[in-house]
Design a protein around this nucleic acid. Structure first.
Lengths: 190, 190, 190, 190
DNA sequence: CATGAATGAGGGTTCATTCAT
DNA sequence: GATGAATGAACCCTCATTCAT
């Protein structure tokens, strides 16, 4: 009975925090000041902290919508006949997901180190999906059998991270994608 | 014409700062507290500041020794007859350079964004060297002609960065290296 | 609607900061080290900073009590029949206010340059009051009609400032007071 | 014999320091950074320090030229028949001297506290001169006999100090001058 | 005698996290 | 539960003065 009333307040605060976090993270990257987020949401810092004990909790929540969207995309990609193209599209979708906020690759990478990290399950899910696409491609001879989903996932994450560099302009990214797709020795003799 | 003397005092402090920085950066990564470094070197923070106005200045200095060593290695690798193997070895050397301190890839990546960054020239030098090894390999048909040195450099940097993740154990790194070397589609059909 | 509670913690710290600031400013002038103030109040510098972002904010707060006292005195002086004597007493009261801390005239003078300075309104209030006393004296022919409140205020401030000099012993101050006093009464009766 | 050679260097340094100090003090007031002065003079900070152990020593040297000029003016003023006008002109000359650098009144005031201060003798000289002008005016009934030179000097200094304030615009200064002027002439004829 | 560097203290500021209410 | 403030560490920076050479 008691737990009914405060919900309204709490929910309002929570969603306002999320709104502001989305805005600040978009504008200043994932390391935006949480205190500023709290202030612009009109709540105390401790309130933010109660809702989201760690920055990653907040981040995980912010990514929920994107997770859903990515999942939709995944479903669409799965319908493709060409498993090689599907894998490529999936990896591209992953990278565009990683680009949601400046600096996002960092906490995602770190999440893999901590069992309890709220972002970890998300990452593991992605790896699984990558494995599925990869397996299909391998079945069709579109991917080398020695490659693993986690490798492609990490490569995508790493390339997303490196995009921050000046040199990593679109052309660089394009080349990097080419690298993992075809390797640098591939057509060497051709 | 200026005083040639190395000002023993200054040199002593400078090298003690470097000693301590080396230690702290090794133990706690490149983001170790500079104040702690100064304290353990027995100097005030202002002294550290005078010698190394920014963390990257300090870092650049710390890397000097390693630069020299890497250069030695580069010379040795250059003597190899197999240009493909040479390229591979050079990339491996680069990665082991990037692993000098936890978190080193981050400032190196950022340095590419800032003209004035003391780490930038180092990076550009590495890219040039990579280009040299790559060119040789391409001449010998050991590398695809579409690949550029900067791409391989960035890939190496990115993979060094991702090594921080639990999943990126040696086996993962090994696979990632395989990826850029041969690509995931390379022998897929083979 | 907001939390009415004075947050005992905060109040305690705040008042302890004020206590210590009062002490240190009294002993070492208005430029006493704020860090020392914080330390002797048993709080971190960040806490002091939160309460009083600038030295002038702290100063303004310290002067509040004195403002109140000065206001009481003003009320008493206002009851005097002799408007000339009243003006003289008010100016004396002002000067003794300015002598609260060594170096106080400096920030007060500077405050007049900055709109946002927390000490500015205090000063402007004083000028207004001076105008009131002056107007009365002028009505009674006890002060020259060409004189303005701000002039007397600035003269009082300037003389308080100069008191810091060795030569400005009581006899000097006495003479300086005579200077402006005789000055503004000069044509008063004419 | 030995003391002949180094003079050239020393003198060059000294005069370059003075040049730069003049510039910096003019632009940023008497509290301009001495280190910056030294740097722009192309000498080490210790060299500046050797030539001018304290800021006031440097200041005193910078004021030498102005002292000479002021003395010339004094001589001219002395030729005036009207001793009252002469006193007024002398005080005006003093104030324009005090305005040489932003913040100059402060060290001048402080100099009166310290026997050894290099600015002290200058100040005492000014007081003496003021006394001379004042005595003449008093003899001619143009100034009250109770006023002393030091008082007028301190008043001029104080008003120069207060000019820094926004309120102390030209009109204010004019009024302040009126204050003391009318003040010391008030009973002049009595 | 000149020098560049060291020094030590302070200033202002930011922030993630934890307490007291 | 929500809050505002406290905390403590760190950072970057500046300066006047003194030391080692």
């Amino acid at each position: 009975m008691q737990s009914r009333r405060p919900r309204a307040d709490s929910e309002r605060n929570r969603s306002e925090i999320l709104n502001q976090a989305e805005k600040h993270f978009s504008n200043h990257g994932v390391n935006a000041s949480l205190e500023t987020v709290a202030r612009s949401a009109g709540v105390g810092s401790a309130t933010l902290y109660r809702h989201f004990p760690t920055r990653d909790d907040l981040l995980a929540e912010l990514l929920q919508d994107r997770n859903t969207r990515l999942d939709g995309e995944r479903t669409r990609i799965k319908t493709l006949a060409d498993s090689g193209a599907a894998l490529k599209l999936w990896l591209a979708a992953l990278e565009s997901y990683f680009a949601a906020f400046d600096g996002l690759p960092e906490p995602l990478r770190n999440a893999l180190l901590e069992e309890q990290n709220p972002l970890a399950t998300t990452c593991y899910g992605f790896i699984e999906y990558t494995d599925e696409f990869l397996a299909a491609a391998q079945r069709d001879g579109k991917a080398s059998p020695s490659v693993r989903g986690r490798d492609l996932f990490l490569a995508a994450l790493a390339f997303s991270w490196v995009r921050g560099a000046a040199l990593a302009d679109d052309s660089s990214l394009h080349h990097l994608h080419g690298l993992i797709a075809e390797g640098y020795t591939a057509n060497g003799g051709g």
